[in-house]
């Protein structure tokens, strides 16, 4: 059976799609996306925190946990290592790191001002821990958040999955 084509017989289909309104709307959509585009949001990342109920962390069994025993302000996980970050007290260069101390069971070790060395130290210290996931950060109240995040970043890079926070020690001593 021979193949017959429509054009061969001289009949041309008249297909005229009106695409102008569609283009108008497409441009409106494009404009909307351009107006709402925030490139900084693409560079934003998240660091998860899981807040345990202190009653559950202290109880020997899950069933023994009593929500009524939960202490307000307690954000701590049962960590073996605590990173204490101190800042200058008084006037002047406030808010920067003045000393980083790592407290372990066998004692405390001062690492000076630089946070760079913290990651390597924690990485080696982590190998000897029974709880290799949890670590606690305890910073002075006036320490700026950027430095707290720097220390948290070092802890995450050292392999600790759960970073918890302790109350500022300077407020704990001064406060009621």
């Amino acid at each position: 059976m021979p193949v017959t084509r429509v054009q061969d017989r001289g009949i041309e289909p008249d297909i005229n799609q009106v695409i102008t309104p569609m283009l108008d709307l497409a441009f409106q959509v494009l404009l909307f996306f351009i107006m709402t585009y925030h490139p900084s949001q693409l560079e934003e990342g998240q660091m998860d925190l899981l807040l345990p109920d202190s009653a559950q962390t202290q109880a020997a069994k899950q069933e023994d946990a009593n929500p009524q025993l939960s202490m307000p302000g307690d954000l701590e996980l049962p960590a073996e290592v605590t990173v204490v970050v101190k800042t200058q007290q008084g006037t002047g260069d406030q808010g920067t790191i003045s000393e980083i101390t790592v407290q372990e069971r066998q004692g405390a070790k001062s690492l000076g001002k630089r946070a760079d060395s913290l990651s390597k130290y924690l990485e080696s210290a982590r190998k000897g821990l029974s709880n290799q996931n949890d670590i606690k950060i305890q910073a002075d109240s006036k320490l700026k958040y950027r430095y707290v995040m720097e220390v948290m970043d070092m802890c995450s890079r050292a392999g600790f999955k759960n970073v918890s926070f302790g109350p500022p020690p300077d407020l704990a001593t001064e406060g009621p």
Binding site: L49, L51, L75
Partner: peptide, 21 residues
């Protein structure tokens, strides 16, 4: 820290901190 403590006291358990990469 105060904000995190207040969130926990209110009853929230899942929390995220945001930072630039």
């Amino acid at each position: 820290f105060e904000l995190m403590a207040l969130c926990k006291d209110a009853g929230f358990r899942k929390m995220q901190l945001r930072a630039n990469t």
